[in-house]
């Protein structure tokens, strides 16, 4: 019964063995993936670990497929010729898929982004969850999962927010013209000095940036470890405002001074406006 010809010269036995080999290769690749994941859990970054696991899985699966095909009597040389012709046909039919595939390979080699990085890709900001061979998955800060084809990822302008170990943020603090800007700068600098995650080096920059219509604008630039940047940025401005107010310095709001005619008469700096009455 096992000698029964199923298709061409392929017997049932060959078919069973080929399928068994393929099935075993799938199982082995899964088991090895789990083993590597467990072994490297605390020894390699998630990104490196995923690349290693994918390479191992693909190699085992390819070996399994080639072995299965050879069991069925398919010669590799024939496969290559057939593959070449099929490749041309498929190439025309699936340009975008091949483009994505090649872009995926380049992304894995060049590594402009890694799994776990916080990035902005084509105005989509979030954390890279996975870089697959065809597409990249990003989890936005609103909790959505966005799948982007690798071709788009590769040609996009990528802002990687966590490549460097530190990053800077800034505020503009407007104080009243009647307040002492030097004193305000001193208060802000002291507050930054007492904040652990506002880095000592590179140092903060606090300076009068411009004399605005309604306020003296103080620019504050602070460097922070990239892991602490967001937490610090979201709390520091309010702390600056409160620290300034406790010292009698108020944040200015838009205002317009209106002079009446009789008041102008007592002010030498302004021309007197005579009333017709």
């Amino acid at each position: 019964m096992l000698d029964k010809i199923m298709w061409g010269n392929i017997t049932l036995l060959q078919l069973i063995i080929a399928f068994s080999i393929f099935f075993i290769s799938v199982i082995v690749s899964r088991i090895l993936s789990l083993y590597v994941r467990k072994t490297l859990k605390n020894k390699a970054s998630k990104d490196n670990m995923e690349v290693i696991i994918k390479v191992i899985s693909f190699v085992i699966l390819i070996i399994g497929v080639i072995w299965s095909l050879s069991i069925m009597g398919l010669k590799l040389s024939g496969l290559l010729v057939a593959g070449g012709i099929a490749g041309i046909v498929l190439g025309f039919a699936s340009q975008s898929i091949v483009g994505n595939l090649i872009s995926g390979l380049f992304l894995i080699v060049e590594r402009p982004i890694k799994i776990g990085d916080t990035v902005n890709l084509n105005d989509i900001t979030g954390i890279v969850e996975d870089i697959k061979i065809i597409s990249t998955t990003i989890r936005t800060f609103d909790g959505f999962q966005v799948r982007i084809p690798n071709e788009k990822v590769f040609t996009a302008n990528i802002s990687n927010y966590v490549t460097n170990v530190v990053r800077r943020f800034e505020y503009n603090v407007g104080i009243r013209y009647t307040d002492d800007a030097d004193k305000a700068i001193g208060i802000i600098e002291e507050l930054i000095e007492n904040e652990p995650f506002a880095l000592k080096v590179p140092g903060p920059l606090v300076w009068v940036n411009n004399l605005g219509d309604n306020a003296v604008n103080i620019n504050v630039k602070i460097w922070s470890p990239v892991s602490e940047w967001w937490g610090l940025k979201t709390t520091m401005l309010w702390r600056i405002k409160k620290a300034l107010e406790t010292q009698g310095i108020e944040v200015a709001f838009p205002q317009r001074v209106v002079w009446f005619g009789d008041q102008r008469a007592n002010n030498d700096a302004l021309p007197v406006v005579k009333s017709d009455k």
């Binding site: 490549t163 460097n164 170990v165 530190v166 990053r167 000095e193 007492n194 652990p196 995650f197 880095l199 000592k200 080096v201 590179p202 460097w223 470890p225």
Partner: peptide
């Protein structure tokens, strides 16, 4: 003791 952090080296290759 209040903690304070800094950067040794440059932002790309340095360490916090």
């Amino acid at each position: 003791i209040p903690a304070k952090y800094s950067l040794y080296g440059d932002p790309k290759n340095g360490v916090v």
